[in-house]
């Protein structure tokens, strides 16, 4: 989308680069659409393609129809949105921190959301309907705390990271404490703690969609500041960027993206850290390309992982976070070793 003006070539090698990048984006989009459709085919029950077809377009109320339309389709859409959100969040934070190891967890969003969510589910289970809301607030509080602690005449990446580690330790300790005190109830929330899209329905799609749409647009508006931040604070300031404002706004958008995701599906790690990296290796560090690709690949990864989570050990569901760590880790290592234009 943003490639239009860039695509007019003036020099051969440069246009080649742009075309290549555009091609990667198109390819990723194609893969994502394919995965989205194919994932409907997979689940703990097996249906033939004909049954799936009938489910999608036939009028009959078959078991396949119920499962494809009311179970797999909303799950796929939730995975689509959450995957994109988390990957974008990670990509933005890596720009904010100018640190390739930054991920949404660093801002305290995940641990804050976890503590809030877990305390409701364990201590006040009767208010369970508030879990998404509380998780979001918890994430926001933790994130605010991190930035409050890190603020000292501006936001310094190192201070954010240190404050993040400290806040995460405190909130994580709280979560551990609760899970020990309420060890008899812990089984019930294990899926949430490890991040699971199981049981997410149209309700969650409707809940997530408006926020995701807003956040996606906001994230895409961050391309320029994110790119400038990559050049270093002084260079970014020199080019007329208000670095502190940009850091704060980008962090807020990133925290929001992570917050809405965590509050709906629980704690899913890995995407926010790995996907931006993979994208840099594939397409370079220009956020104009990297950010959209992050969104696409984040969705692709989560949709695939969720299809695997409900298929591999069927009929038992696995938390999708586990699948991603097991499959994504080695793949990431492979990419790192193979290298690319971007070397860490």
């Amino acid at each position: 989308m943003t490639t239009r003006s860039e695509a007019q070539p003036t020099a051969a090698p440069r246009s080649l680069r742009v075309v290549k990048k555009a091609l990667v984006l198109v390819l990723a989009l194609g893969l994502l659409l394919t995965a989205a459709v194919v994932s409907l085919r997979f689940g703990s029950l097996s249906f033939s393609t004909a049954e799936i077809w009938q489910a999608l377009f036939g009028g009959e109320e078959t078991l396949a129809k119920i499962i494809v339309l009311d179970v797999r389709l909303p799950r796929m859409l939730v995975a689509l949105m959450v995957g994109a959100n988390l990957a974008l969040s990670g990509a933005l934070l890596q720009a904010v921190m100018r640190n390739p190891l930054a991920d949404p967890g660093l801002t305290g969003v995940s641990t804050g959301a976890a503590l809030a969510g877990v305390s409701i589910m364990l201590v006040f289970p009767q208010w369970g309907a508030l879990v998404p809301f509380a998780a979001f607030i918890g994430g926001a509080i933790a994130c605010g705390l991190v930035f409050l602690l890190a603020w000292k005449r501006g936001l310094d990446p190192i201070r954010i990271i240190l404050a993040g580690v400290a806040v995460n330790a405190v909130f994580g300790g709280g979560t551990s404490l609760l899970s020990i005190l309420y060890s008899d109830r812990i089984q019930g929330i294990l899926m949430w703690l490890n991040g699971s899209i199981a049981g997410r329905s149209w309700h969650h799609v409707r809940l997530l969609a408006p926020y995701t749409a807003v956040a996606l647009v906001a994230a895409m508006l961050c391309i320029k500041p994110a790119n400038l931040l990559q050049l270093g604070d002084d260079a970014a300031r020199n080019l007329g960027l208000n670095v502190n404002v940009a850091r704060t706004v980008l962090s807020f958008i990133a925290a929001f993206l992570a917050g809405i995701s965590v509050s709906t599906v629980g704690l899913i790690g890995f995407i926010g850290l790995i996907i931006p990296h993979v994208c840099r290796l594939l397409i370079g560090s220009d956020y104009k390309f990297m950010l959209p690709l992050s969104a696409l690949l984040g969705s692709l990864l989560l949709i695939t992982a969720d299809a695997a989570a409900r298929t591999v050990f069927r009929p038992v569901e696995l938390p999708v976070g586990i699948i991603m760590a097991v499959v994504g880790g080695p793949f990431f290592l492979y990419l790192l070793r193979k290298g690319g234009t971007y070397r860490v």
Partner: peptide, 11 residues
């Protein structure tokens, strides 16, 4: 306790 797929529950 096991996390069983919603699909199996429906079936």
């Amino acid at each position: 306790t096991i996390p069983l797929s919603m699909e199996n529950i429906i079936a």
